[in-house]
């Protein structure tokens, strides 16, 4: 059984936002406009978090790309009253949009704030409507959504592999953000396979997880040379 995980090397990340843009385009994320965005209504499946440490003149600024952590023990799943969010046997945490009642308990329970709510009916500029991704369903107003590790790409890859009559190879399934990263700071693969890149990197000395002390066991691993 696969256990999908992501490794983000912060020492290589240049903060170019390519992952954020690739994610928005891949997953049909609605564009809410600058006004609503300033009010905190914009949706990010992948977000660049700014970390500021210290005080002037000794300020250190760091950027941290943050997708869904796909925790092994997700806080969001426990609190959902209708089972609209689940973790599958491959460790992916998903949302059933048509079952979600929009109570936003999961969004408040998630310690990483990765969950987004559709405050309005989704909208796109006229020019963009033709280029929506047909593999990803559109979320209507009033439901919660979040990063899926581009699960639709896995489904597609499985179909392709089946048609070609071979095993799934590491390069067959890669989320859009990882694919778009120009500095090669992001890796994706099977954490259960001890020889995969992500598996090897996750055991590196530089490796850490976000808010590790909460016991959520994220499957997104960061690499950094210390502070």
């Amino acid at each position: 059984m696969h256990k999908w995980g992501m490794v983000i090397d912060l020492d290589k990340c240049s903060g170019c936002l390519a992952c954020v843009v690739a994610c928005k385009a891949e997953n049909n994320i609605a564009l809410i406009g600058p006004g609503e965005s300033a009010k905190g209504r914009s949706i990010y499946w992948m977000k660049l978090l700014p970390y500021f440490e210290g005080e002037y003149p000794h300020v250190k600024a760091r950027l941290l790309p943050r997708p869904c952590m796909h925790c092994e023990h997700p806080a969001c799943i426990k609190v959902c009253p209708v089972g609209a969010t689940y973790i599958n046997e491959e460790g992916l945490v998903g949302v059933i949009y048509y079952r979600c009642i929009g109570c936003r308990y999961c969004t408040t329970a998630c310690p990483y704030n990765v969950r987004n709510f559709n405050w309005y009916e989704p909208q796109w500029p006229k020019e963009m409507k033709g280029s929506l991704n047909r593999d990803v369903s559109i979320r209507r107003k009033g439901v919660v959504e979040k990063c899926t590790f581009c699960h639709h790409r896995l489904i597609k890859a499985r179909d392709k592999v089946k048609a070609e009559g071979r095993e799934l190879l590491p390069d067959d399934y890669i989320p859009a953000c990882v694919q778009a990263c120009p500095s090669g700071a992001m890796f994706f693969g099977d954490l259960n396979d001890p020889f995969s890149t992500v598996s090897k990197l996750s055991r590196e000395r530089r490796a850490f997880r976000l808010l590790e002390d909460l016991g959520t066991e994220p499957k997104v691993i960061y690499l950094s040379e210390g502070v």
Binding site: V79, P81, V82, A84, I101, Y105, K141, V143, V144
Partner: peptide
């Protein structure tokens, strides 16, 4: 007020159709 807080009040019966007792909201119900 809980019902008016729902993003999808039209689906509130999901609480009866797909109840998950692990959620404190179900304890409330």
């Amino acid at each position: 007020n809980i019902l008016m807080d729902l993003g999808r009040p039209d689906r509130m019966l999901n609480i009866l159709q797909y109840p998950r007792f692990q959620s404190p909201l179900l304890w409330d119900v």
